[in-house]
Design a protein around this nucleic acid. Structure first.
Length: 303
DNA sequence: CCCTGTCAAGTCACG
DNA sequence: CGTGACTTGACAGGG
């Protein structure tokens, strides 16, 4: 089991998501931005190793406009050495890595242009993971997409479009339940047809479900991840008290997290903490686990 | 220097 | 019908 946090670190003094406005685009601006983002990523990863945090989500903002027509600069070649170095570091320390395209990536979009742009973005994210030299246990997690007034046909469209994807994308793609439209049961239906692994978002499930109990879902979900996929990834977050249901908490609710961990034994999973204070909550969660090893299967970082 | 409207992209729920 | 929310705020112009 590993514990991780997404994209940025709030205590380290740099961001790996530096960007600029589209009208300011130039190859030079792109080079300096990506260079700074890569340097910051390395800094975050070093911090994570020093603190035993071996699960990390790399931001899709690493290379601004990577899948936009304006970007013709061969950043893949230009930064190949930097990516390789970071990748060696990741493999040496046995990191687990994920990426999460933003809401504009919709594999079941009826609009051909939206689908094209979505696939373009997936190709970009695959390139990042490939340049890092990571195997197919490094995953790209997306939601099923929109409903477009007809859920059944929208799920069919997802399946059809998924099947047409290049194997390099298929090997890394996993689907995640969302908080409004597609539940875990929907994802499992799609899995039956495509064999795509299903990533369990605990928080979304609490808000949007078909009455399934978490404890009953763990085995079926676990089975959707094959050997090459690595152990299942899970997204966990806490409700921000007194805010609308679904808003992410500022810091982790350790009592709730402990209860969740207890319910997952004996399944070995990697847990992404989607909490606003990022590494701070990850450290708190790790401390909890170290103080009570019975909460997890295996040791933190041991898988 | 700080404030804040806006940013490449899409969908849906809510008020 | 405009706005907020989404895995993640940061840029850049104006005061």
């Amino acid at each position: 089991m590993r514990i991780g946090y997404p994209c940025i670190n709030r205590s380290i003094g740099c961001t790996p998501s530096r960007t600029f406005r589209l009208p300011s685009y130039s190859d030079e601006r792109l080079r300096e931005t990506v260079k700074a983002n890569l340097a910051c990523l390395m800094k975050i990863l070093s911090y994570n190793v020093a603190h035993g945090i071996l699960f990390f989500r790399i931001t899709s903002d690493m290379v601004p406009f990577a899948s936009h027509p304006v970007c013709t600069f061969p950043w893949q070649k230009h930064f190949a050495d930097e990516f390789r170095t970071i990748g060696e570091f990741l493999r040496f320390h046995r990191f687990r890595i994920s990426m999460h395209p933003d809401q504009f990536v919709l594999l079941n979009a009826p609009d051909a242009g939206i689908l094209d742009r979505s696939i373009g973005d997936l190709i970009y994210q695959v390139q990042i993971l490939d340049l890092l030299g990571l195997d197919n246990s490094a995953k790209i997690q997306i939601h099923v997409g929109g409903v477009y007034g007809d859920k059944t046909s929208s799920m069919e469209r997802f399946i059809k479009n998924y099947e047409r994807l290049d194997d390099s994308i298929k090997g890394r793609l996993v689907i995640e339940n969302d908080e409004r439209l597609y539940t875990i049961s929907d994802c499992l239906v799609i899995h039956e047809r495509t064999r795509i692994p299903v990533l369990f978002d605990v928080f979304h499930h609490a808000i949007n479900n078909n009455g399934e109990q978490t404890v009953d879902l763990l085995a079926p979900l676990n089975n959707t991840w094959k050997r090459d996929d690595g152990i299942p990834m899970v997204d966990y977050s806490s409700q921000q008290p007194k805010k609308r249901a679904g808003s992410h908490a500022e810091c982790i609710d350790l009592k709730d997290f402990r209860t969740f961990l207890q319910s997952t034994v004996p399944f070995d999973i990697d847990i992404m903490l989607e909490i606003k204070d990022k590494e701070k909550s990850a450290l708190a969660a790790l401390t909890l686990v170290h103080d009570d090893p019975r909460l997890v299967t295996g040791n933190p970082g041991d898988t």
